[in-house]
Write a protein that binds this DNA or RNA. Structure first.
Lengths: 242, 242
DNA sequence: AAGTCTTGTGGTCAAAAGGACAATAAGGCA
DNA sequence: TGCCTTATTGTCCTTTTGACCACAAGACTT
């Protein structure tokens, strides 16, 4: 074995380009939204580069002097106009042939939002930016279909174990909206009275002391997710389970 | 914004070194083992390079033409002699200053094994390789303490939700050994009769039709984890919960 | 104003799961 | 044999879950 193969020895500066990115390393964002009870994902159509005119996840290169999450936020903002989203790391994908012509490893981040809160604006580098229902996707570049599939399965698991689903709803929501969210993601039917009891017993919802407006039936109470209560319960070893 | 900042445009080959590694990207392995009911982690002492003589996680650079998991396996083998471990991706760490002098992003992998099955042999590139109790760790290089901490917390969560704990035990084990494993990782006490009922009801254990040998009391039956049964149950949507 | 449709909200009940703890069995050892 | 330790089974009670019923509250129709 050559001496140069020692771990962390043999330093050579990574390649830098005029805009100072690490050329072997990219970010891809998976932004999920809920629209009319259906799970959507945010995609962009590339304006330039080798994938011009095709749809893919909003992402791009990581700069040499930029933290990973910052890179994820920057690309999301530049490509879709969306800002101030809390992005969580999902997984790193690095199959040898995932990117054409050279080796690129990509770190996937994800976030969950209420789709109706975000009107997308294609940035300078994107020809288009739009929400897509996860069951009606266009063909995606590179291995983005694989990344998306992984993200959807991850979401289905996580949503039962952690109260991340609330991020997909507007600030104020009804119990039925919450239930339909879970039914939509999990692909099951849930019993209404039982669901509401289960949720309410967790003490994670705070009443807004308000009711729905303009519905053609009895208006439901509005609730919001009580972040503080969740923090307090988490520290006591509480575990969210649907 | 310069034209060169377009996502995935502006191709430049990544830096390559004589041994053909990507210099911005490394692997670090978290190998957990159980020894006398205590959780251990595998560390190596570096022989060369900028961290010579100090302890760290077994890892190193990723080659340009090597898949991520293959890189993880290769480094583990070269540094500790351990082979054929199923490594699972944990998380990618990329803080700007995590590595001295240049930007390096590292992908952490982990595995769980029965510590007694693995006698470590320091490879050519390691001055030493050894198990350490996670409560009695030496000072670690770079951000390896942070990575390890993340891994331990991840393990505590996962062990309750997926039957990964079995990997920490020998092929054949008693129910009490299994219980003590959970007590050790979770830091709690569990009721023996209730624990055994809960486990047995899952139908994940196959009896070895054998008993413990050489114990100074009634010998317990030996069981092994039934991989097939687990696969079958998983497909039916079974969820493991302790 | 009465009727009816839709959705919200509370209740019941039986089955299942969980947890505390007593009781018995098996094997080694003095 | 009696004693000690751990394995294993049993019992009882509480909590949780899931299925389903019933009624309440608006809003719309006629």
């Amino acid at each position: 074995m050559p001496d140069t193969d020692h771990p962390y020895s043999n330093h050579v500066e990574p390649a830098r380009t005029p805009d100072n990115v690490i050329k072997a390393l990219s970010i891809d964002n998976l932004i999920f939204g809920l629209d009319h009870g259906q799970l959507d994902v945010m995609l962009i159509k590339h304006r330039e580069g080798i994938s011009k005119g095709r749809w893919g996840l909003p992402g791009g290169w990581i700069r040499y002097d930029e933290n990973l999450r910052d890179a994820a936020s920057r690309h999301l903002h530049e490509l879709t106009g969306v800002q101030n989203l809390y992005l969580e790391q999902l997984k790193t994908f690095g199959r040898l042939d995932r990117f054409p012509s050279e080796r690129v490893v990509t770190i996937a981040y994800y976030a969950l939002v209420s789709a109706e809160d975000y009107s997308l604006v294609a940035g300078n580098n994107a020809a288009d930016a739009s929400w897509f229902n996860i069951r009606e996707l266009p063909e995606l570049i590179y291995d983005h279909a694989e990344i998306l599939q992984y993200g959807i399965e991850f979401l289905q698991q996580q949503v039962r174990r952690r109260p991340i689903g609330f991020n997909l709803l507007p600030e104020k929501f009804t119990l039925l909206e919450l239930q339909e969210l879970y039914e939509s993601i999990l692909g099951t039917k849930l019993d209404k009275p039982n669901f509401r009891r289960k949720i309410m017993k967790m003490n994670l919802l705070a009443s807004c002391e308000e009711k729905q407006q303009g519905v053609a039936h009895r208006a439901a109470k509005l609730y919001r997710f009580d972040e503080q209560a969740y923090q307090a319960l988490t520290e006591k070893g509480f575990s969210f389970e649907i």
